[in-house]
Design a protein around this nucleic acid. Structure first.
Lengths: 368, 368
DNA sequence: CTGAAAGCGCTTACAG
DNA sequence: CTGAAAGCGCTTACAG
């Protein structure tokens, strides 16, 4: 039974077949496996397709072949330079292999995450990448039923349920604070959102606290402001609170470069000299970090590499390659010391150990 | 003929129907138009669906209904805070109406744009949003054949071929430079990438030149560096060139806040005082602009609103609403004067006229 | 090297 | 309120 053509019907393979004077499946074959078609036929089909500006319906193709040709990524926020770089890495690498990336931005919301996951699963992705893990059991269950490869990134779980390509947020927090301790600071604060307001930041805070306790230092200098993604204004507010309450504070580890910028601003307003009176460290090594005054000490992350490597792992898994690459890959991170912690112009880099980093790429190359 | 089940087959509506003891289309009906199903049946189907964690195959649904349920956006780069906000606006608004957004990141490449467009068209979007227009005739032709609504954004073409929701880049350039002229500057430069290296920036440069010529001022102080998206380092390099070559320069309009930050950095390095020796203006009003030292004069754009309004226009068009909302909508922009042009702490806002802005939302609200 | 048939998982009229 | 049939635009074996 024929449907009402509600609008200009698009060109189908049938139209191309008619124009080229061949059957429907010869068109399909020409487009997918041109080598199995005689040169003459191929040329006629290709001309017809070009003539009609034929664009195959990918949904129909997926349905028929039972291969959607795409991979989904679920992330807390697109407004986060680091996550965006991971998306770039994924997208670039997947494209090389003929896959497309579906992007699901959860806006840091657990409900959004579950709903988005359902939606993405409705498109039958062949694999899914999680930036920072899954927060709800319902989402976890959905994923298990989907029975597709899952790659977790941007963290380093103790007991991973899926493949992981990431780094340890706890280690980042610990390393940075250990390094502040090594500079001789004893009264070190942390500024960030607590717990569920910034799950990754919370882990860094735990690492920070561990470092302090390990060194026998006080660990009460904390301010909880805002929620991820952290804004500059959160840094301004948090700094005001901390400076009022703990005037003895010597150094401050911030949950992100954004908050750190807010802290710098508040220090300037109060005429507190950085780093002399207060040393400041951020996280993420944003573009602007080294151009601030003073330039900002931060943590550089393998954001692009994470995406790239996750994509490679996916491709290898889909292709059933044996032996598959290691399923758990710790790419590490780098501490970049700059003026805000007293390292004038001279960059001192400290790298965490990244045992699984692919040797061919060298250890912790700059992520650009 | 049955296919080999290559992997764990996913749950289909047939499985749900079997479990609920109803026919296939009753499942479909329950999910789509629950009101047309008896409460008892509905409940059984819903339970069965939940029990099996049924996630409908959206590709199959689209194919069958001939409505993909998504809208595509083609943009020059996701690494651009403003474009990202437009994506947010689109995504939020479309989601409210049950549509999903397909994101196509062209990486500022014409070839990528054409290829991406083909790919996106293969998913049969019901409308397409262009951030900054289409660069190749081939792409334009593809789009015309697709016969779907097209909305152009982030610019203001003289002779629009499609609907437009945007603002005039030329006017931005003109306004900023007119405002620098009004401050008494006579030797004003422009720093940005030329021509195709940054099509939008090029338009602002044209506006800048028009303002200078209009005032009878010299227009030779220019530096062409980098390509979009502009990096801080481009600003550093461009500033070095300009300062060497035109030591008499009094003010500099930059293609973006990123370049402006680079210029600030170079000025600091050379001990050139801003704004006393050189006034600096950026573009985009990035988060960090007001927190720099000196705070940066910039141009605030209705980025989120553009996305929101484009989405509303799309929904109205798809629903065939009459009268449709105006198809050409100029949302204007705001100049934000800060310390880098000598407006200490006091914000002076100059708005372009935005005749088509929806009155209900007030004129040029802050884009947050 | 090419084509007729069956099918992917849904939805849309149309009957009942 | 519910179901049998046809079809969306492709691809996949299988014949020839």
């Amino acid at each position: 039974m024929s449907r009402k053509a509600s609008k200009a019907r698009s060109i189908t393979s049938r139209d191309v077949a008619a124009l080229a004077g061949v059957s429907l499946m010869t068109v399909s074959r020409t487009l997918r496996t041109p080598d199995l078609v005689s040169p003459a036929t191929r040329q006629r089909v290709e001309m017809a397709a070009r003539e009609l500006n034929y664009v195959p319906d990918l949904a129909a193709g997926s349905l028929s072949s039972q291969r959607s040709g795409h991979v989904a990524v679920l992330l807390p926020s697109l407004r986060h330079a680091g996550f965006l770089r991971t998306v770039d890495g994924l997208s670039d690498t997947l494209r090389e292999h003929g896959y497309h990336l579906l992007i699901g931005d959860c806006y840091y919301s657990v409900e959004q995450q579950r709903e988005l996951l359902r939606m993405l699963l409705g498109r039958r992705p062949e694999a899914i990448v999680l930036i920072s893990g899954l927060d709800s059991p319902a989402a976890q269950e959905l994923l298990e039923r989907a029975a597709i490869p899952v790659i977790e990134t941007w963290h380093w779980p103790d007991k991973p349920r899926n493949r992981v390509v990431g780094f340890s947020q706890v280690e980042v927090g610990r390393s940075m604070s250990e390094s502040l301790i090594a500079m001789g600071h004893t009264r070190i604060g942390f500024l960030g959102a607590l717990g569920a307001f910034d799950p990754n930041g919370e882990q860094r805070r735990q690492g920070h606290l561990a470092a302090l306790r390990n060194a026998g230092l006080r660990d009460d200098i904390q301010s909880s402001v805002g929620k991820a993604p952290m804004a500059i204004e959160d840094g301004v507010k948090g700094a005001a609170q901390l400076l009022d309450r703990y005037p003895e504070m010597q150094a401050l580890a911030c949950a992100s470069d954004m908050t750190a910028l807010g802290v710098l601003h508040e220090c300037r307003r109060r005429a507190i000299s950085v780093p002399d009176q207060l040393a400041i460290a951020g996280f993420g090594d944003f573009d602007f970090a080294r151009y601030l005054q003073p330039s900002l000490t931060s943590v550089r992350l393998p954001s692009y590499r994470i995406g790239q490597q996750a994509a490679e792992l996916i491709i290898a898994t889909i292709n059933g390659e044996t032996p598959p690459p290691p399923s758990h890959c710790n790419l590490g991170f780098e501490l970049i010391h700059r003026q805000s912690t007293g390292h004038d112009e001279q960059f001192e880099a400290y790298s965490s150990n990244a045992p699984d980093a692919l040797p061919t790429r060298g250890v912790l190359p700059h992520d650009e």
